[in-house]
């Protein structure tokens, strides 16, 4: 996750200290990706080392306040204008699990799919409940929509897997979608 760029983008709106940065980050993203304050300070130290931010003294209560440098501003601008890389897909446990399930004798793939679909649907219902419950601010609303759309995509993909498996089971003499009674024979 781009904590570094996100903090820089927040600092571009004015000097802040670590705890403030954490609070603002979580406000805008609905605490979907919790940040601990230690992580914020480690990142700030690294940003300072790279000349992207500089410490700007302390406020009345002794918090060290950081401000963005010109190099930091350039970095933020570059972040906003560069697409997020899709070349290296993030590791997807579910895709890996299904790929192994269809190739491992004795696994009931149909049940794997069904259980996952129920679980993902339950998550989707939770997200939708959050949307229903009140006036979300725009930023958090969009993050929530992103979670909604990816859960939906996962369910569509599971439906698709199920349909593919059924077709494969019909086309082949030995069913793959259901539990094979004697794995030895299948080998």
């Amino acid at each position: 996750m781009s904590v570094k760029q996100a903090l820089l983008a927040l600092l571009e709106q004015g000097p802040r200290y670590g705890y403030q940065l954490r609070t603002e980050f979580e406000q805008r993203t609905g605490s979907t990706w919790p940040l601990n304050v230690g992580q914020v300070y480690t990142t700030l130290t690294r940003l300072e080392r790279d000349g992207l931010v500089e410490a700007d003294g302390a406020d009345g209560e002794g918090h060290v306040v950081y401000r963005v440098t010109d190099a930091g501003r350039d970095e933020v601008a570059a972040w906003f204008t560069t697409p997020v890389a899709r070349t290296q897909p993030p590791r997807d446990e579910l895709a890996i699990k299904l790929a192994l399930a269809v190739t491992t004798p004795g696994v009931d793939v149909g049940t794997v799919i069904q259980q996952q679909r129920s679980a993902t649907m339950a998550a989707l219902q939770d997200y939708t409940r959050l949307k229903r419950e009140g006036d979300l601010d725009l930023a958090w609303g969009l993050v929530l929509d992103s979670l909604v759309f990816s859960a939906e995509a996962e369910i569509r993909w599971l439906d698709h897997c199920e349909a593919r498996l059924r077709r494969a089971a019909l086309e082949r003499p030995t069913p793959v979608a259901t539990n094979v009674e004697t794995p030895e024979v299948a080998r």
Binding site: M121, L124, Q125, T128, A151, E152, R156
Partner: peptide
């Protein structure tokens, strides 16, 4: 699914049977 998620319960049908 995105629309079904507005419901209190979601019933999945396959070939005329409630599967989940």
């Amino acid at each position: 699914a995105r629309h079904a998620a507005w419901a209190d319960r979601v019933v999945f049908l396959r070939d005329g049977v409630v599967v989940d």
